[in-house]
Design a protein around this nucleic acid. Structure first.
Lengths: 334, 334
DNA sequence: AGGATGAGGTAAAACGATTTATAAGAAAAC
DNA sequence: GTTTTCTTATAAATCGTTTTACCTCATCCT
């Protein structure tokens, strides 16, 4: 039951290991192996179902054809959908993806990076969290391609692909204001990454540009790893106490908790209370009434991430960093 | 920039490679290495940040500490949540998970299996599809631990963990009947895997036990890879034409399409029209009214899968196959 | 005294590929 | 008729580990 090795093939074909290797790697022509031998070896490989041991191959060549993908939580639909798209596209180009979730835990993130490093992945696609700057910098220093998506770390110099979070927030607040909303709340998280900050900045700027003064009491920052029950309670308090007429949720899971909160206090979404969620979600289309959402261009993000990675992988020199910002789309429902 | 090897450590510590290896692998005591040397080497490893090259290690030992997970679609929340739980639990035991989606495509599934095989994963966790029996059998013949979850293939003899699909369907139909429903429809898929068949069987049996005759016209089988638009159209036709008063959806994505269909034809869920979805989904709790669902015990499934895998991995002999069936829970909403 | 045992270690083979350097014979060039 | 150059291939080094087999002293036993 031992699986076949290149040596077995060589013996069967009565040629050297080298010859088999050249044929497998398409270097037969270049190395001037005769047509007859190529045929014979290929036939034997075919019949025996031999597959090269990728581990041995990686050890020798130093690359694995594997790309590591690190996200916050693979069970969040934004990430799982992006992961799926990236996986698809990478797969078509001969790369496999290994993914793993950090759960916003710095130690776990560091361990994951180490594990990917010791497995010699060829490149890293990361939706980063604060606190791993040093580890990322080491990867870059060692010459590894690293690309951030969705989130960015200000202190690290590498390519980034993400939606225009600032503009998306700005747009949605504008929309609220055109509807005549006066007391617009923002529910966000306390994780300090650039894209969350930008979402807040867009909110502030839009208010300011419309002559509405920013009110700290209308902004609720939720602890990241907090129990959902507690989150819902905090939101209920916010929604009940103030005469809020619109809410922007900075992430889709916050929006979902928010909808639960609204349901519990029996507050209806409608003319006198509007919401917009950042990141679309299946539940929003289905909800009655439909929930407006800022839809991130998943397909484009995935496409650009892969494009940048492959460019870097196929280039011998370090390419210039690129920052690709893609507009988000405000989907108005009902 | 080259990363350190065990040799570098050996040179720095002025001992042999063997000695370093023994220390790294905790065999120092057993191989009677002196305390002094152990300390010295450990210190050097610590300071230099050396991490063993897992590829070389895998090549030598023949195992990778990686478990391959193959599912239909990682962006489906059932799978991504299970994946996340399995990942967590495996991680705690020192195993990493690589996952990939088959998209119900036989060729892709076969390729994935080959790719995992050539990467020498230690075990396979698979939610299988029809058509890959031979490949799976080869894995088993080669002595690889393989465990199925959620779905099962009748012709393959291996361990399985899943919910009690038959009973879950049965239960929900019973529930409809107790509510006085007469014309109960079933929307399912045409993929021919055991768990889908069992869901249908439960439906039939429950009708039969209650003296209602099975009507083929009340059962809609949706093609797997069909456009959602078409699916919705078919459902609209079903829901409009007949005086159906209850529907059981055999998967959560079918339920979501079904809810969209109902919304489009403006049919309300309520006393005269009930639905139950197989597999819970975030959207169902949020929906107004809440959508009843058969909740699969994700945590228990993941726990059992990992338990079986680790048992098999740590045993030298092939263990007996186990079939672990866990009851699903009917969550009634509104 | 001579053999057995243990302590503390190391050299070298092995895992399965890729790749560099080279060989043997035929054809071409001078 | 040598020397060069192709053609067709191969031997051996290499990647970074683990592991087997062995070595050298010192001590213990009888």
């Amino acid at each position: 039951m031992k699986s076949l090795s290149i040596k077995d093939i060589a013996v069967k074909a009565n040629v050297s290991i080298t010859t088999v290797s050249f044929i497998i790697n398409g270097k037969a022509k270049e190395k001037s192996i005769s047509e007859a031998v190529i045929e014979k070896v290929k036939k034997i490989i075919e019949e025996s179902g031999y597959k090269p041991n990728q581990i041995a191959r990686s050890l020798r060549t130093g690359h694995s054809n594997i790309i590591g993908l690190i996200v916050e939580d693979i069970s969040n639909s934004f990430f799982s959908r992006i992961a799926r798209l990236i996986e698809d596209k990478a797969y078509k180009r001969g790369y496999k993806i290994i993914y793993s979730s950090t759960e916003n835990n710095i130690d776990k993130a560091k361990e994951l990076i180490n594990m990917f490093k010791s497995r010699k992945v060829d490149a890293y696609i990361i939706s980063p969290i604060k606190g791993i700057e040093e580890d990322i910098q080491m990867l870059l220093d060692d010459g590894n391609p690293v690309i951030f998506f969705d989130r960015n770390l200000p202190d690290i110099n590498t390519s980034y692909v993400g939606a225009d979070h600032f503009d998306a927030s700005y747009q949605s607040i504008q929309n609220f204001i055109h509807q005549g909303k006066k007391n617009i709340a923002l529910v966000t998280t306390d994780i300090n990454v650039k894209q969350i900050v930008e979402r807040c900045d867009g909110y502030k700027k839009a208010l300011e540009d419309n002559g509405i003064k920013y009110d700290d009491n209308l902004v609720l920052k939720i602890h990241f790893n907090q129990e959902e029950g507690e989150t819902i309670d905090q939101m209920k308090k916010l929604f009940e106490q103030r005469n809020i007429d619109a809410v922007l949720f900075a992430t889709n899971y916050l929006a979902i908790s928010g909808l639960k909160a609204l349901k519990q206090i029996n507050k209806k979404i409608g003319d006198d209370f509007s919401v917009i969620a950042y990141d679309d979600h299946e539940a929003f289309e289905l909800h009655t009434p439909g929930i407006s959402a800022l839809q991130q261009p998943l397909e484009e993000i995935a496409e650009n991430v892969i494009k940048l990675i492959l460019q870097q992988l196929s280039s011998k020199t370090k390419l210039d960093n690129q920052e690709i910002i893609i507009p988000a789309k405000l989907i108005l429902r009902d």
